[in-house]
Design a protein around this nucleic acid. Structure first.
Lengths: 256, 256
DNA sequence: TACTGTGAAAGAATTCACAGCC
DNA sequence: GGCTGTGAATTCTTTCACAGTA
C-alpha cells in the first residue's frame, strides 16, 4: 500500500488521555474504523453496486467476501465497524448495505475534485468517467502552461495554476489530485493546502511534506512496480532453491 | 494500499521450523522482509537516488526518515531487514544503501512490462518515462482494437490482444499491467496468467481472481477517492463537533 | 559523541471460533 | 441449519529504549 499516511495524521486516536474529557463522540467512532477497513469498504461497495445491477437483493458474508477477494471473517468484522445490518441465517440486504457504506464513506455529498497537471496522466484523469459517476465531479483543472489555459479537457477549461487559490475556493474543491512532474509537486501541494484543500491524491513520485491536518494518499507506479519486482525476484530464488519435502533451503515453507 | 494481496500466498514464513538448519541466506532474508517494509524500501530508494544526484554521500537514519516521511526507528528496522550496512556514529553510505536496496528489490535485472489496454491510461503508461528509466522497459502493448494494431505508442507498436501469449513469451514479459475497461479485465488477466505472467498491476476497478502463485497489486482510483472522501467527511463531522449523547449528525451511533 | 542495530513492549489488524438469532 | 456479530487468540507492524560501536 501504499498510502502516504504520515504519522502525522493530526487526528489520532488517543486511547485514554486523562483530563481531556472527550464527549465520547463521532470523532472517536468515525476514527474507530481502522484505515485498512475503510479501504476495503470501498471495495465492498463496488462489488455490491455490481450486485444491485444484477438484481441480487441479498448476499451472505461468504459470497461477498469471495467477490471482494477477502476472507469472510474479515468482511464481517469490517461491516461490524459500521453497524449491524445483517440478518442471522440470511445475510445482508444488498441495497441497505450500499446505503450504509456510502454514508460512512461520505459519498452522500459530492466532492469536487481539482486535477493539477494536464499532461498525459492529467488528461487521462480528466476524461476518466469513473470520477463523476461515483460522486466526484471534476470541478477544476490546472496547468502551468499558459497555452493550455482555456482549452477544454474532458469538458472543463483548464485554468492557469496561478489562479489555483481563487478557483479552488470558488468551486469548493475538497480533493486535489496532483499529476505534475515530480519537481513541481511540492509547490503545487503547498498551493493546494493554502487554498484550503485538505485531502490530496498524489501521483507524482515524491514524498509530500504537509501539515498534520492534511490527508495525503499516494499512487506511485514506480513503487508498485518495484514491489512486484521484489516478488518476481523472490519467485526466481524459490525456483532456484532446492525444496525438500515442502521445506526450502532455509526453513522457508513452500507448500504446507 | 491498498494492495490486492491474496490470502493465499503459498509461501509462508514459519518462525522456527526445527530441523532445517538455515544457512542464513538471501531467500530466508528475502521472505523475512515484511510486505509493509518492502513498499517503504522502494520509497527510500527513490529518496536516496535523489541524494546521489545531489552529491550527498552519507546520511543518517533521522535525515533519511524525514525525507521519506517515516519515523527513524521504523526506517532503521526496515533497513535492518536487509542487513547492517550503516556505520554507528556516522550513518549510511548513500551509494552502498542504494545498491543493497536495488539488489533486494530485484532491480538488478530488467523486468519487461506489458501494458494491456491502450486507452487514455494505457497511453499515459506507455509514455511514462519513469518505467524504463527505473529498470522496467515496456516490452509490449496490447489492445483489442484491430485499428490500433501496429500503431506505435511511446515507440512500441501495439499488438493485438489475441497474440498476447506468444508475444509475452517471446519478449519475456514478467509484469503485466492491466489498463482495460473493467469488463475486460478478468479475461485479460486470465490470458496474462496463462501466458506465464505471475505479477500483475491492475488499474481496472475490479477484483481479479487469480491462482495463488500470481501476485496482484491494484491501483484503484475510485477506492483512493473514497478513502479521501471518508476523511473529508470525518473532518466535517469533527468541525461540526456537536454530538448529542453519543448520536452523531446523521444518526451514526457513536457510543452505545 | 553520535549514531546504528535490535530485543522487547505496545499497538493494529487479522483470524478463529462460537454464542446468538432467524 | 445457516449465517451474523464479536470476544479472544494470533499474527503482523510499529515504536521504544538502550546496548554497542566507530
Amino acid at each position: 500500500m501504499a498510502a502516504q499516511r504520515g504519522e502525522g495524521d493530526g487526528v489520532v486516536t488517543r486511547p485514554g488521555v486523562a483530563g481531556a474529557e472527550a464527549p465520547a463522540d463521532v470523532r472517536e467512532r468515525a476514527r474507530a474504523i481502522p484505515e485498512a477497513a475503510v479501504a476495503r469498504l470501498a471495495v465492498y461497495l463496488r462489488v455490491l453496486s455490481g450486485m444491485v445491477e444484477q438484481g441480487v437483493t441479498t448476499i451472505s458474508s461468504e459470497e461477498l467476501a469471495g467477490a471482494a477477494g477477502v476472507n469472510s471473517a474479515k468482511l464481517r468484522k469490517d461491516l461490524s465497524y459500521i453497524g449491524s445490518y445483517g440478518t442471522r441465517g440470511v445475510g445482508y440486504d444488498v441495497e441497505v448495505l450500499v446505503g450504509h457504506i456510502e454514508r460512512i464513506l461520505g459519498l452522500t455529498r459530492k466532492h469536487s475534485v481539482a486535477v493539477v497537471g494536464i499532461g498525459n496522466l492529467g488528461h487521462a484523469l480528466a476524461n476518466y468517467g469513473g470520477f463523476p459517476s461515483r460522486g466526484f465531479p471534476v470541478g477544476a483543472l490546472f496547468d502551468v502552461d499558459p497555452d493550455l489555459t482555456g482549452v477544454p479537457v474532458g469538458g472543463i477549461p483548464v485554468n492557469h495554476i496561478d489562479d489555483i487559490t481563487t478557483v479552488c475556493a470558488e468551486r469548493e474543491v475538497s480533493i486535489g489530485v496532483i499529476a505534475t512532474p515530480p519537481q513541481a509537486a511540492q509547490a503545487v501541494c503547498d498551493r493546494l493546502v493554502s487554498a484550503g484543500v485538505q485531502c490530496i491524491l498524489n501521483f507524482a513520485p515524491v514524498v509530500l511534506q504537509v501539515p498534520d491536518y492534511v490527508e495525503v494518499r499516494k499512487v506511485d507506479l514506480a513503487v508498485e512496480m518495484q514491489i512486484l519486482s521484489f516478488h518476481v525476484a523472490r519467485r526466481a530464488d524459490e525456483a532456484a532453491g532446492d525444496v525438500v519435502n515442502g521445506i526450502g533451503v532455509d526453513g522457508v515453507v513452500i507448500r504446507p
